[in-house]
Amino acid sequence: MLNKGWDEFEIGAMLRSFDGPTSNIATTLQEDRPYSQSNSFTASVADWRIEKPVFNKDYCIDCQFCWIYCPDMSIISRDKKMIGVDMDHCKGCGICVEVCPTNPKSLLMFQEKEDEDTVLAAWPEKEDKEK
């Protein structure tokens, strides 16, 4: 299907999100879903990113602000805990960093090429609030 030319497309097309039967998607987590090849979950927009968010779980308070405001379903939360960023679908908009309430922030933006362990080691210290 993916290799069709422009003049071979069907005029009215139906795409299936899943391969095989699914009973209740609303309560099935992403890792348990039988995604089909035509679901955009199997695609990646990682090359859109200029900066990437890096998650430091030492400072995270699991408030889930990043989860609710992420426009790309890229914050992975399981059992009320934030466990990481989905780097296949993150477009690097930076909303998660803006809404992070901790001090210092537990999510920060870095250049795509930077090494994650190095930036985690040099994480900024707690800033004093201006009075």
Partner: peptide
């Protein structure tokens, strides 16, 4: 609360082509 809400399984998938930071998908 938000913690409870975050156990929801999304039915809208990533790698759509909306601009980075688009409020539509939120």
């Amino acid at each position: 609360n938000l913690k409870e809400f975050s156990t929801s399984a999304d039915r809208f998938e990533g790698a759509n082509l909306l601009c980075p930071g688009c409020a539509h998908s939120i």
